[in-house]
Design a protein around this nucleic acid. Structure first.
Lengths: 211, 211
DNA sequence: GTGAACAGACCAACTAGTCGGTTTGAAATA
DNA sequence: TATTTCAAACCGACTAGTTGGTCTGTTCAC
């Protein structure tokens, strides 16, 4: 196995520090000191501290957007699609918790040209959720009286908020959290008929483990 | 009417700027320039820039905590209490949107002695929500299979997340948003029996306006 | 007159980014 | 194989600009 590349080491160290102290609470000098590098090494790999921040944002949003698109394509019904997307969304916290923290906390400090690129992908992500909710209402799986926009933003909010409290070594596993979230969300969205559908209600907590 | 005090003007200006550019994106010089004050005036009213940040945090959390306690005392059943708390929570965005944005974005930069005080109140707020959920399960109004912790954090997350998208002049009023949130949350929490209770289900969207 | 409220020039510390130099490793050459 | 070459990777002292905070006044209300 080859020695871990400097760029990777810088990113990892920066991530840990940013998560704890915030982007402005960490100096470039501190980052390079903490990972045994130098100013020169840093600026050889990154144009600026801002570019590092952008890189962190981009890695996460690109990954999570891909996962959502995969989940959408893989399943055919709105409920299954929604559950799969939420499941993948929650699961990302397992690997990318520091990225997500930085993403949610420091986005305001992205330079305009970077912010634009990130916002585009963020917007795409939202649209996938909205799309699934729309399809769910059309298919009469989801209640028609809910607001797609508000329901979508609620889902995004409750999952994203995990970055404030989720601890990888906490009492609940990622899989358990995802299951509970899906249960809560489906209970708030499903129509009465849909709940009676065996295939759909299998995603609800009270049915987990049943055959 | 007396001339608006300098301290108030500083806070208002700082709030607007912090909301847009972040705490570290705004200098003390900028704040005082923008509200026609001076460095001297600023440091006469605040010990430091950090104290101003703390003050903003404290005003908001104190207010919202009070509102939740009031709502808790005012009503007697878990469902009513929860709806009232959420309603008051959402409503705060109408007056304190900039405060909340700063509260959610910049808390990491609070100096330890300040952070501790704020966290205490934040924790109290969470406990009120947990308490209501606990009572709701005991009273068989809320489903017993849900996790109090996760349900509580979900609620807090979806409401707090509003700071990312809520615009006071947007298409939905605060009251409408609160109604939709309550509908979504209750649908995910209520037991089947509770939903059949006229008194309880009056908080659901499909029943709003009915007699 | 006296102290609180405010003004604004000034300072010291900090920090992102630079720049000339050194190391390293792999390809080219002999 | 031994040697040269050269560019990419990396180093770290230095700089220029910024920014929170201070300090010496001045104004104003009572």
């Amino acid at each position: 196995m080859v020695e871990k590349q400097l760029k990777e080491r810088i990113i990892e160290t920066a991530l840990t520090l940013f998560e704890k102290y915030g982007y402005h609470g960490v100096t470039v000098d501190r980052i390079v000191a903490e990972c045994g590098a130098s100013k020169g090494g840093f600026y050889h790999n990154f144009k600026s501290k801002d570019e590092l921040l952008y890189h962190i944002h981009d890695v996460f949003i690109t990954y999570v957007l891909n996962k959502a698109q995969e989940a959408y394509v893989k399943y055919r019904t709105p409920t299954k699609r929604l559950c799969a997307i939420i499941h993948s969304f929650v699961r990302v916290f397992h690997i990318y918790k520091p990225h997500i923290t930085v993403f949610n906390q420091e986005a305001a400090y992205l330079k305009p040209e970077y912010a634009e690129k990130i916002n585009e992908k963020r917007e795409q992500y939202k649209q996938i959720i909205f799309q699934v909710l729309r399809e769910g209402i059309e298919a009469k799986e989801f209640r028609s009286e809910i607001s797609i926009e508000l329901a979508g933003l609620s889902i995004i909010g409750m999952v994203n908020w995990m970055y404030k409290w989720y601890k990888p070594d906490g009492p609940m596993s990622i899989e358990q959290i995802a299951a509970v979230f899906n249960d809560l969300i489906l209970h708030s969205l499903l129509t009465e008929e849909a709940k009676r559908d065996e295939d759909i209600s299998s995603f609800l907590l009270s049915h987990v483990g049943e055959e």
